[in-house]
Amino acid sequence: MTLSSKLAIVFLALAAAFAGGASAQTAGDPARGKTLYFDHGCYGCHGYQGQTGARNLVGTNSPIIAKPEVFLFFLRQRGNFLPMIPSTAMPRFSEKALPDPQALDIYAYIKTFKLDAPDVASIPVMGQIEASAARAYQAGR
């Protein structure tokens, strides 16, 4: 089993654990969250709309962003090891660096993201690319 699938199981379990219990968290404000998403550089690895870059934050059915509690847990529990070689992995966000209320604002903003992924068949350019790939090869073009 890969590390990421192990993690997925952990977070699914967490999501289940948090299920039902009334949320202690107050809901975040997506407008404030938008500014924070930029200021804390989330856009840097997830794209401005959460769908380009290292990992999509929309349309993935990830348990990590299914509930605010799990999301907060995820932010805090990232390893605080110093990378011996430069890393672009998801940073750890300590309570001090990104307090719960702000993190929840970001969460609220992330939840506003709408997946923008038209069908391949509906994009003319993609149709042309597929047709081109299917065409017989011509040496020297």
Binding site: D39, G79, P86, T88, P91, R92, K96
Partner: peptide, 14 residues
């Protein structure tokens, strides 16, 4: 790279 580094040190990425 800097974002990860700052995060690892618990100092935030802002």
């Amino acid at each position: 790279f800097l974002e990860f580094m700052a995060g690892a040190r618990g100092r935030g990425t802002d």
